[in-house]
Each structure stands twice: as C-alpha cells, then as structure tokens.
Design a protein around this nucleic acid. Structure first.
Lengths: 231, 231
DNA sequence: CACACTCCGTCACCACTCCGTAAGGATGAG
DNA sequence: CTCATCCTTACGGAGTGGTGACGGAGTGTG
C-alpha cells in the first residue's frame, strides 16, 4: 500500500537515506529540513504519514506534531537521538504513533512505517467520520471543516454534503437527478438546483472555476470528482 | 464517556505515559506496579477498565485477569512485550477484551480503550469523572468545577454538561438535536433550547462572546468545540 | 408557609445567510 | 448552423442563528 510521506529532518544525509529507502517501498516521499516549513507544507497538502525529527531548526518536532494533531489525526513517527530517550515520554504524550532512536537501521524504520500505516488505515477506514483528502484539499467530515491548502474555506451545509459525496466516490460520474436523490434526498425536483450548487462549490474549491480540475462535468451525463494526485 | 481505569504496569515510564494519555481523554486513572496489589484494589473498588501488563512482580497479568473475572466481569486490555506474542492466545483465552503489544502508540491504546469501553458500556455503569483542559480553561468533572485562568467561574448543571460533552469530543460538530439527545437525554424537543444554552455558556466561557473561539457554530449543522491553538 | 432567588425552557424579533428558481448567454456535439 | 446542454447571474422567499425577555418550576431561607 503506497502512501505520501513527509520526512522532516535537518541532516541531509539522513534525510536522503530515509527518502531512498521509503521510495523503494513504493511510497511518495517529500523532504523538508525545518519545522516551520514542515508545518506549512503538511497543512497545505496533508501527507499520509510524517517522519519527524525531534531536534529541528525554527520549530521542534514536538511543536509540529502538536500543531498538526489539533487539525486532524495524522500518523507520526518520531526520530530521536540516542541521548534523548527521556523525550520519548513527551513524544508519545503528544501523540506520536511510534518512535525510532538514532542511529537506526533504514530497514527498521521502513517496518515501523508499514506498521503505522496499517494501523492508521484500519483506524480511519471503518469510522464513519473520517478525513477526506485530495492534494491540498482536506475535508474533515467530523468537524465539518474544509481547508484548501492552509486556508480554511467555509462551505454551506449543502455544498459540504455535495463535495463529500463526490469525494467519497472519486472518478464516478453522477447524473443531476442521482445527486438530487443521494445528496438532497429528493426523488423529484428541478435538476438545475444541482447545477447552481456545483457552480457555487467550484467557486470556492477550484483554483480556476472556469477550468475545473476537481469537479468535472461529464457532458450529457452530469458531474464527476477527479482526484489530483495521479502520478 | 469518561471512565475509571486501573493501570497495572511495573515500568514507571510506561505507566506514566499511559496514565497521562488516558487522563487527557477525560478518564480517571490509577496506577499500580504490582499484580497482587492490583487484584486487591480492583476487588476493593472495581474500575471500569483494567490496563494490565502481562509481566508483573508477585503475580502475573494472566492470574490477575483470571482471578478478577471469577468475581466481576471487568473489561481488560493486555499489554504484552514484543517477544511474548505467543501469549496473546492465552491472554485472549482468559478473557482479555483486547491486547496491545509493546512498544505501542498511546493513541492506539486510547482507541482500544474507547472501543472496549463502548462495548462494555451495557454491562458496567460509567462513573463520569476526570479533568478536561484546554488552554486556560479547566473543567474538573469530578468536582463539578470550572476555572478560566485563575478565576473560578460558576456554571449551571446544564451548562456544565454541555461544555463537558463538547470538550470531550473536540473539533467534532454536533447538531442541535444530537446535543439535545446526548446532553439533555431527550429524543424530541425544541432545538432552540440548545441555542440559548450555548449562548449563555459563551457568555461565561468566551473572552469575547460575540466572536466565539471555543464554541464555534457550524452553519446549518450545529456547534463544535475548537481547542485553542496555543500549546 | 411565604418569600426571594436561581435556573430553565419557550417565544418573538431581527439580521443575516442560504437555497431554489428562472432567464439569458455561452459552449459543446452533430 | 442548429440544438441541446451547460454556465452565469440575479432575486425573493425560506431557513437559520443571535438576542432579549418572560413566566414557571425548583430550591433554599427565614
């Protein structure tokens, strides 16, 4: 199971080793060398997992972890130096899912990554109120909150339901009457209602509403949600 | 959904991590480092849940579990070291409700605890104690006392229950009818009741009630508790 | 028992947001 | 080009949330 992983580590040698090893496991890896930048990126485009060094310039790993965890439960693996084992308590307290002490074997880290990912997917999948993600678009169903990048955008209840429904069924084309039925709960009604709501939703969600990339119209059929991260 | 939890663990570091984490979920946690003592205490004052290490001085976890189960169907989560996985079978056989292998993530343990408590909710009565904290706001559920900074503020019974319920489920959006059901215990009624109580609660809890930062309204949905950004 | 007090649920009012509809313009397919 | 389909805009009604106030129920006190 491939995942998007953000590695936050100021030692370029360690970062590269970790990245190579994780990429060999089929993951998509991004590297950052400073805490504040890590937080910014993680908020803008939430990864599936964070590998986080404890000692970082500008903002340490604990702060980053805490800040992120306020937003949504992103899985985190902490990297700690050998002498920092006292911090293990603090690290686990802030909600890290696992920790690895330096010097570590890349193989061990990879195993932990797999383990944490497995747990995380098991934990979020069956729960009805999860987090829908696509690129820099994040939909927190439980909190009823949507953010595009690091900015929160306010959606109407209907807009929210519509977006959530489309994102839950990516690449699936829905007719207007089908959406009217499944989102609105109506069995009759004017289908132009859907059209207008899609338009308003695009205005808020699409970078360029005149050229939609997420909510695509399927001519003669209806609409479809197109995920952005397809490598 | 708060509970009294007895943690039986001889490693003080692990015990402390577990205790802190569970307390943050609003549970009332007690720690013991010895099997026989655990059995004594659990029999004297039965907790809602037992977190039980397998390897213990004087009496191992399995014996404790078995002895307890003879007298009281207390829910049990087993902690096992990595190499002891064979004992997992035995642990479940003796009636443990779940097991977690060390090293474990506190988050996973917390999830298991919630899950086990949910399952066992029908058999054991929840006691409803603990301390909820967010920034300068402290809610002592047991003492029924609320402090904002160094000042104590007086809340009505309903206001207290409402605040506690929201803080126990941070960032989770509740509809008015859901709150009416979960806090008031009604299955019908005027939802404007909730509106007014939220208003009165904001008047006491929010620094600026006209611009709420903690109890946020989600338009067309209901309300949500937003933890403060300051760690 | 009478009184004062607090808490609670309800209501009316107002401001504001959202929603559905309609109509005209733009753009696709054939 | 023609037509069906889709986009865009605008608007009035309906819905939603905040506020203040009121009367009744419950509680403690003299």
């Amino acid at each position: 199971m491939s995942a998007r992983i953000l590695v936050v580590e100021d030692d370029p040698t360690v970062a590269e080793v970790v990245a190579r090893y994780l990429e060999r496991d089929g993951h998509q890896v991004e590297c950052v060398d400073d805490g504040a930048e890590a937080l910014r990126r993680a908020l803008a485009s939430p990864p599936d997992l964070l590998v986080l060094d404890l000692m970082l310039p500008r903002m340490d790993g604990l702060q980053v972890c805490r800040k992120l965890r306020e937003r949504w439960p992103v899985p985190v693996i902490m990297l700690t130096a050998l002498g920092e084992e006292i911090d293990r308590v603090v690290g686990l307290e802030t909600g890290a899912d696992d920790y690895v002490t330096k010097p570590f074997s890349p193989r061990e880290l990879a195993l932990r990554v797999q383990s944490v990912l497995r747990r995380a997917r098991g934990a979020t999948a069956p729960s009805g109120t999860g987090v829908l993600r696509d690129g820099d678009l994040t939909v927190d169903v439980g909190a009823h909150e949507v953010r595009l990048g690091d900015r929160e955008i306010t959606l109407t209840a209907r807009e929210f339901d519509l977006l959530a429904h489309l994102m839950r069924n990516p690449r699936q084309a829905f007719s207007r009457t089908a959406l009217l039925d499944q989102v609105w709960g109506w069995s009759f009604g004017d289908s132009s209602t859907v059209t207008v709501h899609v338009r308003r939703l695009r205005e808020k969600v699409e970078p360029d509403p005149t050229a939609p990339r997420r909510i695509v119209t399927v001519w003669g059929v209806g609409y479809r949600y197109e995920p952005s991260d397809v490598p």
